[in-house]
Simulated assay, not measured.
Amino acid sequence: MSPDGMFLVTFSIKNTSKVVGREVAQVYISDLQSLLPRPVKELKGFVKVVLQGGETKSVKIDLNHEALSFYNDGQMSWVAEKGKFEILLAASSEDIRLKNKTESSSTITWTRL
């Protein structure tokens, strides 16, 4: 993760069949150390991919600190906490295909919508 909170999720996806296929690759974030209760995983990005039979594509999804954030009503601001986050790549919320981790070195807060 860059100092300004940007990070890139990259992966390859392959169509193992002989016919054209489509997939919606989904990126979920799980906050491993949140100070407040949060969902186990939150959908933060997705991309639709069309693949010819046997084709493999490299896919990139740009995310930023907002993907790590939640609204803290006590502070009346958005917060992306310092700490570790798990990145889950999935075909659906129940079909997790890959896992990785990222870490934010500082807490970022802001008040805009």
Rank of each mutant, 00 (worst) to 15 (best):
Q52V: 01
P39A: 13
K41F: 04
S105N: 12
V20H: 15
G21A: 05
L36I: 15
R22T: 13
L36G: 14
L36F: 14
K48T: 15
S77V: 13
E55G: 02
M1P: 03
A91D: 09
T16H: 13
V9R: 00
A67K: 02
N15K: 02
T102R: 06
D73I: 15
S105R: 14
V27Y: 10
P3K: 01
Q26V: 11
L32R: 03
I96Q: 07
V59Y: 15
S34Q: 08
L68G: 00
T56W: 13
K14T: 13
F7P: 00
S30R: 10
E55D: 03
I108F: 12
S17T: 02
V19A: 08
K57H: 13
S104P: 02
S2A: 10
E23P: 08
L32A: 04
K101W: 08
G74E: 08
V19F: 12
G54C: 10
F7H: 01
Q26R: 11
S2G: 09
D95H: 15
W110Y: 02
Q33T: 08
I13C: 01
G54S: 01
T109V: 05
L8D: 01
W78D: 11
G83H: 04
E66C: 07
T111M: 08
S77L: 13
W78L: 06
N100E: 02
V27S: 04
V47G: 05
L98E: 08
A90P: 07
N15G: 08
T16L: 13
K44H: 11
E23G: 12
L63F: 02
R97C: 04
K44I: 07
N100I: 12
K82S: 09
K82H: 09
I108M: 10
L63D: 00
Y28P: 10
L89Y: 14
S17F: 11
F85Y: 06
K82T: 07
A91K: 09
T111K: 07
V20W: 15
I87V: 13
K44E: 06
